[in-house]
Amino acid sequence: MPWSVPLFESSASAPPVPSGLPLVIALTGFTDAGGAVSGLIGYVRDVLDPTPLAVFSNDVLLDYRARRPIVSFDTDHLTDYRPSRLELSLAHDALGQPFLVLAGYEPDFMWDAFAEAVLEFARAYAVSTVTWVHAIPMPVPHTRPIGTTVSGTRGDLTEAHSVWKPHTQVPATAGHLLELRFAESGASVAGFVLLIPHYLGDTEFPAATLAALDSLTVATGLVFAGDELREENREYLLRVEEQVSGNDELSRMLQGLEERYDAYMAGSTHATPIIHTGDLPSADELAAELERFLATRPSSDDDKRA
């Protein structure tokens, strides 16, 4: 008898999900320059504490030898086994606004079946928009705003926020396939490609995660607090500046990248970058935004009269 495992398992304790929520997709895999997507997933899981709705099967989708689980060893015995996770969850932003998030590893196998399952979830929950983010290394300086290339069906976002609009072919990711399938279905979908300085691509660059969160805010209106990330980024940039200032070759490279970047942006008819490394709200700004948000909501008496 052939052996088979379901593609995913629905959570028996999943809460009710309102219809019409935005869907956010974050999949690590082929490229993740600056750790943008892994940082985004870590932020969602650690800060927002999402509730799983469906857990995808590692035995079906994951190549264990390519991305091995982590085990913990204590003196003479094993204490923990941590497999990779790919989950569809319900989360809430800093203002309590709900949204759906598909986060985890990029599947190694069964892309078509995976894409169809995600589209079926989107249809069942009647999602309002679909937004995904990934990051690639580019010859750009870290002293300038992080730019984006935006694709999908939301022309307003592409026109406003794409600083680079290439005509090219690239190795596909599962995120590309999902965007294509959502676009074919007529969904409102946007893909943000973050353009990360190539010399920082193999590091954990906090600004990359900030830019990923900022992109989601632009596309969905969700609000995320970024105080800790901003502080980490300030410390990170200080270390980078120390290395650059102490090395003539690095200084010349950075100056050349800045000159090329400034010349390109000065002559470009494309959008100007709005993704900055420090423009997420501070705690005080977030509190003020929350007050404004609550002030626009109907009171309990208004709800009863409606």
Rank of each mutant, 00 (worst) to 15 (best):
H167W: 10
Y81D: 05
Y125E: 01
A183R: 10
R68D: 09
V163S: 04
G152I: 04
T143C: 08
A160P: 02
L100M: 10
V127Q: 01
P69L: 08
D108N: 15
T149Q: 08
F73K: 05
G186F: 13
F73T: 03
E184C: 05
F121D: 09
G104W: 04
T143W: 04
I70P: 01
D112W: 04
D74Q: 14
L48Q: 07
V133M: 08
A66S: 13
L86C: 08
A94D: 09
T153H: 12
A54I: 04
S72L: 13
D76S: 14
T51V: 15
L86F: 08
Q97R: 15
F73W: 15
S151I: 05
A126Q: 15
Y105N: 04
D156P: 02
E179H: 08
I136G: 02
H92N: 02
A115L: 05
I70S: 12
M138L: 11
R68K: 14
D112Y: 05
E120M: 10
L100S: 01
T168I: 13
S188F: 09
R68I: 02
T148I: 03
L180V: 11
D108K: 02
E106W: 06
P107E: 03
H176T: 06
P137C: 02
F182D: 06
D74P: 04
E184D: 14
D112E: 15
L100D: 03
I136R: 08
T158F: 10
S188P: 00
E116R: 14
V101I: 15
P171E: 09
P52Q: 01
R67S: 12
I146H: 00
A187M: 15
V101A: 14
H77Q: 14
P50N: 07
Q169V: 14
E184I: 00
F114L: 02
Y64Q: 11
P83I: 05
R181L: 10
V71S: 14
L62T: 00
T75L: 12
Y125L: 11
A124Y: 03
E106Q: 12
D112R: 11
H161R: 06
V170G: 07
E159F: 06
V133F: 02
T51R: 13
